[in-house]
Every structure is written in structure tokens, then in C-alpha cells.
Design a binder for these strands. Structure first.
Lengths: 194, 194
DNA sequence: TTTGCTTGTTACCGTTTGGTAACATACTTT
DNA sequence: AAAGTATGTTACCAAACGGTAACAAGCAAA
């Protein structure tokens, strides 16, 4: 028997990660975490208080999708900048199952951790939108509108792709479909941005 | 005690509708349906076989969002036609809670009833896309791309709006936010379609 | 070494879930 | 009227859920 609190805490959090990636946040229950981690559920309550707090901690630890992971590309050309931002966003969401599960979870659940996350997203997005608006001469609402069309479509299709392979004849389960979609996004930006 | 099978079947289906509208498909369990409908759950199994089949029947009965409810607007102008199709789609999804719950449910679940629904949606969408492509001179993939950006954003934001009021500074819980979004959609169509 | 605190285990609890057997009541047909 | 079938009710079951009390084992400080 090993007596090491921080280690078992980590084992619990790792178990949460496994469950989230495979089945989603909805499946993170006390029994499931205890079983997957091999840790008694009493300790889950002792160390994290509740499942809600455990998930809050997990989200806090793994908000890499907002900080280190997602690098805002640098470009002097506004159009190319916008394109590469969207491209980077698509890549990130597509290759991060836990992030897809988070987006899905947000549609059925609300709690302080999620709200905090959304506020930070909103801040980051508005920062980019502001910059693009200034450099492109387009109004804030216009840029925000374009941004909304893309950043809402991406998580939706990524989540959907788990159950549905084709959407409007695009194969959203493969790179080819997303490449085609990106072509249209690029085309749209070409037409709209100066 | 009334002995009337078709009547109790309808009471069961109505209970499903109530639960779906208020809490979503995820909350439709045998006990919940029995409690809300006031009908013994034994009869649910007897008359519908299983919850899956009950939900399939409910979806089949209520696919009004594809037939009668959603009227494809008529226009000789392609641009105006496209705009009014998107506008009608937004109106329909926004004012139909059960439809939002269905879109949400599809993100976590898959079954034959859902797949059948998706196939019909795909057919209808491709029909419209084809028509717009021919009349506008834009390629199929281009029109499909534009259509995807809109028809993915709409259910996503509608579902999200239950838990989140603001997205990219748009108030997605009120008409004003959606009007602004529609302005951008119209603007985009003006720029892209001939 | 003894005392006290932390860490971990076992066993249990009440509730809710999906699901069914057994029975009672009504209607229909012969 | 009698028999048979459709309808509805009651009561129960096993499993999974979230949650906790009570105890055992280890470690640290006195």
C-alpha cells in the first residue's frame, strides 16, 4: 500500500481524462472514476469534494486549448492571418477529443467552471476580432459574424462527426472534407476582406 | 378505468413530447414517461417494445420540421431565395424547442431513427444546394460550403443559447443577436453569389 | 514509544434506474 | 352466459447510482 496523496490525486485526474476522452464528461461519475483509477471513491470525495469540483479541477488543469496549445499565427496580411487562425482552430479541435467532448458537454450542462471558460474564450475571440476589424476596415459586427459562422460550425461538425460521417456531401470524418470546407472559408474571406 | 389503447398510446407519446421539450431526449426514460403520462410502464413496453422504439415513433410522428412546417420559399432571384431559406431555417429552429433537443441528442447518440432522419435532411439540403448552384453559377462544393457554415451554426447556437447568452458579443438569446447574424449572412451571400 | 493526523479499505445505505411476473378488470366473441 | 383476449394495476426484482460511516494502516511529531 502506497501512501501518497498527490500521486493518487493525479491518478484520479488521469482517470477523469481517460473517461472524458472516450465517453465524455457525461460519463464521469464517482463509480466510474473510482473503477478506472483504481482508487476508492471515498478518496475522491475527500480530495476533491465532489464530482463537480473534480471536473472543475480537470478543466482548470487542461485548459491548454486556450493557452499554450493554440498559438495565434502571425501575419502582416489580414486575410492570410484570418485564414490561418481558422485553420489552426480547426486543426486543434479536430485533433483534441477531450475538447470536442467539452463542447458537447457545454450544450447540456452549465456550471461555474464552464462559465469561466466561456468568458476567457470570449475575451480571446474578441481580441482577434478587434484586430481583424481594424486591419481590414470591416465593422466589428461583420468580423464577429464571420467568426461566429466558422467557430460555431467547427465544434458542431467535429462533435457530430463521431456519429455522422457526411454533412452536405462533405466527408467530415476525413481530412478531405475539412479541406474542402476550408477552401470555402478561404474563398469567403477573399471575397469579404479587402 | 378507461380501456382504450390508442388513447393511452397517445398519452404516452404526449408525455414524451413534454419531456423532450423541457429536458430533452436524454431524459426520456421509462419511469419518467410513466410518471408524466400517468400510464403504467408495463404498457409502454407492451405498446412500444422499448424506449428506443418509442422515441423512433415519436420522431416519426413529429418530423414536421422537414415536411409541412418548413416551407421552402419561392423566389426568382437566387440571392433572395438563399437568404429567405436561411431565414426560414433560423426561425424554425429557434422557435421549436423539441427540434433543438433533437439536434443536441444527435451529438451524443446514434440509432436507426436518427440515421433515417439525417438521410432525409441530406436529401432536402442537397436539393436546395443543387438548385442554388445551377442558378448562381457557383460550384456545388462552394454552395454546399456556404450552406454548411449556416446550417451548422444555427443548431449549435440555438442549443448553446440555453446555457450561454452571448457568443462573439452577439446576444443569441434574443432576436437582436440573430438579426445581426442574419445581416452578416445576407452580406456574405451578396458578396459571393453573382 | 506513544500520540495524533493523514491516507486508504471495507462495507454499507437510500434512491433511481430499466425491466418483468402475476394478477385484476374490462371488452368481445362464440 | 361463458370463454377468451385485450387492457390496466400492483408489486416486485437486480443493477447502478451517489454518498458516507467505521475501521485499518501508515507516517510524523511529541
Amino acid at each position: 500500500m502506497n501512501k501518497n496523496r498527490s500521486q493518487t490525486e493525479q491518478r484520479i485526474l488521469e482517470a477523469v481524462g481517460k473517461i472524458v476522452e472516450s465517453e465524455g464528461f457525461e460519463a464521469v461519475g464517482v463509480n466510474a472514476v473510482a473503477s478506472v483509477s483504481g482508487v476508492s471513491k471515498v478518496l475522491i470525495y475527500r480530495y476533491f469534494g465532489s464530482i463537480e469540483q473534480l471536473l472543475a479541477k480537470y478543466i482548470e488543469d487542461n485548459d491548454y486549448w486556450l493557452n499554450s496549445e493554440f498559438q495565434i499565427p502571425q501575419h502582416d496580411n489580414v486575410k492570410e492571418f484570418s485564414k490561418s487562425v481558422f485553420r489552426a482552430y480547426i486543426d486543434m479541435v479536430r485533433k483534441t477529443p477531450a475538447l470536442q467532448k467539452l463542447y458537447r458537454w457545454e450544450l447540456t450542462t452549465n456550471n461555474p467552471a464552464i462559465e469561466k471558460l466561456r468568458e476567457r474564450r470570449e475575451q480571446i475571440a474578441l481580441g482577434i476580432i478587434n484586430a481583424v476589424s481594424q486591419q481590414s476596415g470591416q465593422s466589428l459586427e461583420r468580423v464577429a459574424g464571420i467568426s461566429t459562422l466558422v467557430t460555431a460550425t467547427v465544434p458542431y461538425l467535429c462533435v457530430l462527426s463521431e456519429n455522422c460521417k457526411v454533412y452536405n456531401s462533405f466527408d467530415i470524418s476525413s481530412d478531405s472534407g475539412w479541406d474542402k470546407l476550408l477552401e470555402t472559408i478561404d474563398f469567403m474571406l477573399d471575397k469579404i476582406l479587402d
